[in-house]
Computed example of a mutant assay.
Amino acid sequence: MLALVTAIAAAGHDEDLAPLLDACASAGLHARAVAWDDPTVSWQQFDAALLRSPWDYTERLPEFLAWCDRRDQQVSLLNPVHVIRWNTDKHYLSDLATFGIPVVTTTFVEPDAEPLQALQAFLGTEPAPEFVVKPTVSAGARDTQRYARAQEFAASNHVARLLDQGRGVMLQPYLPAVDRAGETALIYFEGSFSHAIAKGALLQPDAAALTAPFAAGDISSRSAGADELALGEQVLVAASRLLRLGQPLSYARVDLIRDDGGHPRLLELELIEPSLFFAQAPGSADRFAAALASRLSGDTIRARTGTG
């Protein structure tokens, strides 16, 4: 049996869950939606657990990671636990940059830094008229805000609030292409490209930071460009090498945005709990369910025979 892992706080917010349950049933895969933080769940009944919408992990990270470690002793986690640990903190962007991945320019500010000094150092090297402040552990643009250079004081207070909470901070230029064309999200199942969607801009000028761990947005289907697909493949290869993966990731979402030169850059690599936007890509839930059924069948055979 497959556990589709959500959270009590995410109840009613995961639009992918119902179609995935239906697709799993059609594929002959017995799946059930359960919350990671529900103490009544008997995890021994499951063969594997697929993280889908444990979206409150950003507020309960130590507790969530400890839960992942415990489940890893009982079931096959999808994606694996060391992938989860790596991907929960957006410092992973630095790792990918060292592999030559063109990521959106990012400056990390750690909890022991002086907020205003760190922000001024960033602005001294970054010519963009607008920039973004966000925590390194975040989902759905929670606690993320867009600022103009003239809002340095307000931005430094935002940085200070996050640092005071013991959270790392990211500073990035706000790329205006997102206002014109949004982001492109590439979705992969078992290492194979499935579909792409466009995400409209979430961050508006002078708007307050979002507080919910799940954020609605303007979502539509999109045909990915050849350069975007090439970068998506490059990102997955780099992640596989960094994480020493022996098989493809069960799922991945590669979020891209174009820079001022029109070139795609990596904004985020989502390997934990990304929305997969089945509604915008007919047949995609069935493709994912078929890929899961194939993987779990292979894992069962290997477990029975003792082969690796």
Rank of each mutant, 00 (worst) to 15 (best):
S223F: 07
R253E: 08
R244G: 07
G225N: 06
T300S: 15
A216Y: 02
D227H: 03
L236W: 08
R304M: 14
G283I: 02
A230W: 10
A279I: 01
L210A: 14
L243Q: 02
L203Q: 02
L292M: 14
L296A: 08
L236A: 13
D299G: 12
D259Y: 04
A293L: 11
A285P: 10
R253Y: 08
A281K: 00
F277Q: 08
L292E: 13
E228M: 04
P282E: 07
D255K: 03
I272G: 05
R287W: 06
D259K: 02
F278K: 01
Q204C: 12
Y251P: 02
L271K: 00
R241H: 14
L269G: 02
Q247C: 14
Q204W: 09
G232H: 13
Y251R: 01
P274I: 09
F214V: 15
P248V: 04
S223G: 07
S220F: 10
D206P: 15
G261R: 00
R244L: 07
L229N: 09
A281M: 00
D286F: 08
R222F: 05
G232Y: 07
L249S: 08
L203H: 03
I257D: 01
L256E: 01
R258Q: 04
L271I: 02
A215K: 11
D255G: 05
H263G: 00
A291Q: 04
A208H: 13
G298A: 14
A293R: 08
R241Y: 11
L231N: 05
Q247V: 06
L267M: 06
G262S: 01
R258H: 06
E233Q: 15
A208P: 15
D299Y: 11
D227M: 06
P213Y: 12
H263Q: 00
V235W: 05
Q247W: 10
I257Q: 00
L292Y: 13
S250L: 07
L242E: 06
S294G: 12
L256F: 01
A293D: 12
S240P: 07
D218K: 06
R253N: 11
F214P: 14
R287Q: 09
I301K: 11
S284L: 01
F214C: 14
E268P: 12
V237S: 15
P274N: 11
A216I: 04
V254R: 05
I219H: 14
L210Q: 10
L242K: 05
P274K: 05
A207P: 11
A224V: 00
D260V: 07
Q234S: 15
L249R: 10
F214Q: 14
L256S: 05
R304I: 15
S221D: 02
R244F: 06
F288W: 04
T300C: 15
R258A: 07
T300E: 13
S284M: 00
G283Q: 09
A224Q: 03
V237H: 12
R244N: 09
A212I: 08
P205K: 03
E268G: 10
R241Q: 14
D259R: 00
